[in-house]
Every structure is written in C-alpha cells, then in structure tokens.
C-alpha cells in the first residue's frame, strides 16, 4: 500500500479531507465574523448560534414543511439573516456608542438564550439529516475514496468565500464597505446610509454562518450546541489570521482545518487543542496575526 510520510495514503488523505471540511466551515464562519467585526467593531459571539440555526431551520423545514436541501440552502440563510437584522436593529444598534465589550456580552447572552431554548425544545442529542440524493455516494480516485457530499461542501464553501471576496475587493459596493470600515463618519458625510449598510452586513454575516450550518447538517448531526464549541475555534482562527483582512480570514480558516487534520494523523491527542496552540505561537511571534495590518 502506498504511504505518505509513513502513514498509509488513504488514512492520510482521509484525515486531510476531514481537515479540509472543517477548514471550509472555519473559513466561512471567520469570513462572516471578520466582515461584521470590520464594520461594527463587534465580536459576534452568536455567530456559532447562527450556524446552529442554519442547520436547525434546514432540519425543521425538511421535517415539518418538506423543504428540500437545495431550497434550504437559500431559505435558511435568508431566515437567519432576517433574524440577525432584527437583533441588530433592536439591540446591537443601541451599543455602538459604548465600549465594544458590551456587544460581545450582549451576543454572548443571546447565544445562551437561543441555545437554551433549542436544548429545552429538542434536547441535546443530535438529529440526523440525510444527504440529498444527488450528492450521495462517492467516487474512487484510485488512491482514496472521496464521498461526493464532502467534495461538495468544500467546493460550495470555496465558491462562497471567493464570491464574497470578489464583491468586497472588486465592486463599488465593496469599496464603500471597505471605506466605511476605515472611517464610517466620512462615508456618512458623503451621503451614504452607513447604518443601513451595517444592518445589511450583519444580516449577510449571519446568512454566511447559516449557509455553513446547512452544509454541515448532513455531516454532523443537527444539535443545539453544535455552534458553541465551533465558534471558540473560529475565534482562534480569527486571531491567527488577524481581523484586518478578508482573505486572511478565509486562508487561515482552511489552513487551520488542514493543520488539524494533520495533527489527527500524527498526534491525535492534540488535535482538539492544536488550533489554540497555533494561536498562542502566532501571538508570540506576530501579535497582529498572520495577515493582520495593525496590532
């Protein structure tokens, strides 16, 4: 059997694939987190909750309304975006003039409430979500077996990240967004409704998280705490990448997933903490983060 660095190739590549999938989720989540942070100066603790809500809306939709996976992929993010917009308009909006820590505390409370409610209603155990038939099965690549759905998750996340990146870096709207991130007051003085922009960006970030949640539903079981543990790793990703850069958020997401995958191969016990160890090292060596502009 072929080996890679002393490990049977299928095992090695299998772990790498798992790592890439986790990395895809990290990337989509940290992208949304970075967008929101840039414009709102808010660490959205409820980002993991939005991810969980995406998965749950998708599961509930299938179970009670017969909404299929493909429709969910659009509907769930929209629903969660709407929810996020309501949160921003009713609560977060009141905090922009205060210390930024309050936003973190508010979204932390929000995450507790929403996750508590779902635990109360659905218990802590997971609900299965079937892989859509078009994406079931797998292909034998000769050196490994590749489940189609997993390939789809990576592809869909990559496309989503790239499209978002293109919008931000290459369009007029993106230029306004970058400018408002730097100096919101001046952009207001140009006649732009920055408050509306903030609301939309928060909704979009929530939608991205929910999109990742829908993608995750068939892989992990759908449960109320699926977002809570993930988001802390994503925080580490964001610190590693540096909040300043959109591409940094995407790259460090995928990178960290792969590092985790490799760690599972060589040092399985450390795989759950490797993200935090990398974060600590990056902070010691380059406090602004790998792609960060300012400390």
């Amino acid at each position: 059997m072929m080996e890679i660095l002393g490990i049977p190739a299928p095992v090695f590549l299998g772990q790498l694939l798992l790592g890439a999938i986790n990395g895809a989720f990290y990337a989509v989540l940290s992208l949304g987190l970075a967008l929101i942070f840039g414009l709102l100066n808010l660490i959205n603790f409820a980002h993991g909750t939005f991810y969980m809500l995406g998965a749950f809306v998708s599961w509930l939709g299938l179970r009670y309304l017969g909404i299929d996976y493909w429709t969910s992929l659009v509907v769930a993010p929209l629903a969660v975006a709407l929810f996020g917009i309501v949160i921003e308009r009713t609560m977060l909006k009141r905090l922009y003039d205060l210390d930024h820590l309050y936003g973190l505390l508010l979204t932390f409370g929000l995450a507790l409430v929403i996750e508590g409610v779902f635990r109360q209603l659905h218990g802590a155990s997971g609900q299965p979500y079937a892989i859509p038939s078009a994406l079931s099965g797998g292909v034998n690549l000769g050196f490994m077996y590749l489940p189609v759905y997993r390939a789809w998750v990576i592809l869909a996340s990559l496309v989503m990240c790239l499209v978002t990146w293109l919008i931000i870096e290459r369009t007029k709207l993106g230029a306004l967004l970058r400018a408002a991130t730097e100096n919101p007051d001046l952009v207001r003085a140009f006649g732009v409704n920055v408050s509306l922009m903030i609301t939309v960006v928060f909704g979009f970030g929530a939608a991205l998280a929910a999109f990742a949640g829908v993608l995750a539903a068939p892989i992990y079981s759908v449960n109320p705490i699926m977002g809570a543990n993930l988001i802390i790793v994503v925080f580490a990703v964001v610190v590693i990448g540096g909040m300043g850069s959109i591409m940094g958020a995407i790259l460090s997401g995928f990178l960290l997933g792969l590092v985790e995958g490799l760690t599972k191969v060589y040092w399985p016990e450390a795989s759950s903490v490797v993200a935090f160890m990398v974060m600590a090292v990056v902070l010691m060596v380059k406090p602004a983060g790998l792609f960060g502009r300012n400390a």
């Binding site: 207001r188 003085a189 409704n193």
Partner: peptide, 24 residues
Amino acid sequence: LSPNRIARMGIAFCPEERGIFSSL
C-alpha cells in the same frame, strides 16, 4: 438630521486629515 441626509441636500465635506482611504 443625520450626516447622510445633510450630504444629500448638496453639502460636501473635505476633512482636515483629508480622509484618504488606505484600503482603496
């Protein structure tokens, strides 16, 4: 009125620190 409404009435502002955006 808020700044964006005032701007839309036809007033434009060039700030002391110039406000050139580094990401653009």
